[in-house]
Design a protein around this nucleic acid. Sequence first.
DNA 1: ACCGTTGTTTATCGACCGATCACTTATTAA
DNA 2: TTAATAAGTGATCGGTCGATAAACAACGGT
Lengths: 228, 228
Amino acid sequence: MKKKATPKRARTKQKRLSPDDRRKEFVAKATEFFSEEGFGGGTRDLARRLGVTQPLLYRYFPSKDDLIKEVYRTVYLEPFDTGWEKLLADRSKPIRDRLYEFYNAYTNVIFNRKWLRIYLYSGLKGLDINRWYVGVVRDKILTRIVRECRHEAGMPLQTKPTAAELEMAWVFHSGIFYYGVRKYIYESPVLESKEQMISDALDAFLAGFERVFGATVAISRAPVKVVG
Amino acid sequence: MKKKATPKRARTKQKRLSPDDRRKEFVAKATEFFSEEGFGGGTRDLARRLGVTQPLLYRYFPSKDDLIKEVYRTVYLEPFDTGWEKLLADRSKPIRDRLYEFYNAYTNVIFNRKWLRIYLYSGLKGLDINRWYVGVVRDKILTRIVRECRHEAGMPLQTKPTAAELEMAWVFHSGIFYYGVRKYIYESPVLESKEQMISDALDAFLAGFERVFGATVAISRAPVKVVG
DNA sequence: ACCGTTGTTTATCGACCGATCACTTATTAA
DNA sequence: TTAATAAGTGATCGGTCGATAAACAACGGT
């Protein structure tokens, strides 16, 4: 008892995409699908959402696993902006402004159902790509943040942050990160203003870093800037 | 081609447990199993780990889902210690000592592969029990912490914390929580001393709370608007 | 020693999954 | 127009899943 209401006519209306574009379209929709259903979601359901039949998937991807791998690749690699590193290192701006700007931009990218769910799924699976990403966050973001904090506090420059310093940056970073998880995964009520959350977390981090590691040096606090 | 090496002899050795104990044993092992495999893990694999055959599970549990529900129940309810609330409210001790003691005790309970994985899985599934738990953390722990911080800072007592105060407590709490995730789920290197991590996070939180919400700085605080 | 009760296994069912193949339809080039 | 090629579908396979039924084994009361 299948519905057959002029399927051919309907399909011929839409232009045929180039193989590469079609493939990308599949990956994009698959990302959305798996982020909601988990990677246990079936290929038939996925195909139905794509408006095609299930075997067609296997013309574009050798296996479901290969499709999933490509989903990971796009989710993890696509949004990462190398300009962020430069932003964090730009000492012409106050450190607080840099961190505030960075975390607003960063969370604008990762705070959505799709990204967070894919991230958490891959983390639970213990996939290499997740470990790689954690390493990137540590090396490209947190290490840089600690370095800037040390500089700000007039502490001697060290190429590598101490484990305790890095840990403090992790706790700070994770606190912000989990705001997104609470909002988009747990769908729990959160403070409406993400900007204020970041601002307050930043105040606590800078004050804490100074208190724990900086001893005597004071960090003059910049006013909260509400941007974009 | 099944292996049949004297299975009966091996089994008769062990004493038969009472039905209730056997059931509990199953739940305990199932918890371990699902925490590693995810809830997509098969009942046959689970049974193999229990050293029994798969249909036997259905004598103790009506369905796989019922078994899973009981796994959730034990994981979520078992470890929660109501004494923690009293500890947090005990104003004969300095607030920092209370928080330090609480978070050491709390993380001793939840920082293990089993608990964290079950928690994250249930969170991704959007299960009610997860939302319930998040609500408990908010109402029993964070609300109390904020109240104590307000008291400590000599601020007027309010029955309910503001959204911004609660959010700051959440960010602090989540930062500590994610230390466990990084260590036991991502298996990423972390600061060896959990105590130091808690201590430093605590310093940052208390300093930040005072700076952001304390009377003297509240005046100079930039107007971040909390909109609906 | 017997029997009923309970615990456990073997065998199997229907549903669903990922994947493959033969076939049909649409597009492009000559 | 037609032949070649690519895109897409229907049917189906082997495997695994959760769950059930019936047979079997172990224990306890009498």
